[in-house]
Computed example of a mutant assay.
Amino acid sequence: MDQRSFRQAVLLLSGDHSLGILKVMRDGQWHLSSEVAHHLNIHITTASKFLQGLADLGVVERRAHDARTSEYKLVSPRLRLEVDLADDVGPLREAVDFYVTYFQVLFEGIRRLGWPSVETEMQHRLTTDHQELRAAIFQEMIAGSNGGLDRLRDLIAAVHRDLWGICSQSLGRSTAERVFQRALREAVGTHPDLAVRCGLTRPLEA
């Protein structure tokens, strides 16, 4: 599994009732969260969240029981976690998500201010003048072939300088700062740990 999935698995399995729930599931049969919770005398929400998390990781199978509930089955009674520490694609994808969120919120802010000419110019710069950014994301870095996070930060910094120049000249520095700072807060809120650990905010400093 990738590093992100590994972190999620470790967090799940470190819970108070994780081993008990897994032991209930080891018979290989389908179980409802309510059955597991009743067996262990724990709250159904505790069992449900744990099983949903395991299903997202592929550790248990999930199928619909009725319109509102699901049931779960352990894939194997032997649980083994393997992580490739040399694979940084997971964090890179999260970094791409971080910057996508940033630019989406930024464009929404400009749109709300009612400056279509500014928005049009920003879109032109992003889609025409900076085609290298899209190529790097979708061809090089996601395939793990060139540069990784350092390359992504450099490209984002170039895009950010252009967009900041357009907005600060058209809207005024104080208005532009408010719009850009709001976008930054929203993006940091999506991946706060990664934003700090990988320095994702550095290219966005106006």
Rank of each mutant, 00 (worst) to 15 (best):
20 G>V: 05
19 L>Y: 04
103 F>E: 06
101 T>D: 06
66 D>H: 12
27 D>W: 11
93 R>P: 01
85 L>V: 13
100 V>E: 15
87 D>Q: 04
74 L>I: 10
69 T>C: 08
68 R>P: 02
106 L>A: 02
97 D>W: 09
22 L>C: 11
50 F>G: 00
94 E>S: 15
77 P>M: 07
63 R>D: 12
65 H>D: 04
72 Y>V: 11
65 H>T: 03
38 H>I: 02
43 H>R: 12
66 D>Q: 12
20 G>P: 04
91 P>K: 09
99 Y>D: 09
25 M>I: 03
100 V>A: 15
31 H>C: 08
55 A>C: 02
68 R>L: 07
46 T>Y: 03
85 L>K: 06
72 Y>G: 08
43 H>V: 05
56 D>W: 00
70 S>V: 05
56 D>E: 14
71 E>W: 10
69 T>P: 01
63 R>G: 08
104 Q>I: 10
88 D>K: 05
102 Y>E: 07
71 E>M: 13
27 D>K: 13
65 H>F: 10
47 A>H: 01
90 G>T: 06
39 H>V: 09
53 G>P: 02
87 D>R: 06
95 A>G: 15
38 H>S: 14
35 E>I: 03
58 G>H: 09
94 E>D: 14
87 D>A: 09
32 L>Q: 10
100 V>D: 13
89 V>W: 10
26 R>W: 03
36 V>P: 12
85 L>D: 08
23 K>T: 11
38 H>P: 05
33 S>E: 05
70 S>C: 10
41 N>G: 12
52 Q>S: 04
22 L>M: 11
55 A>F: 02
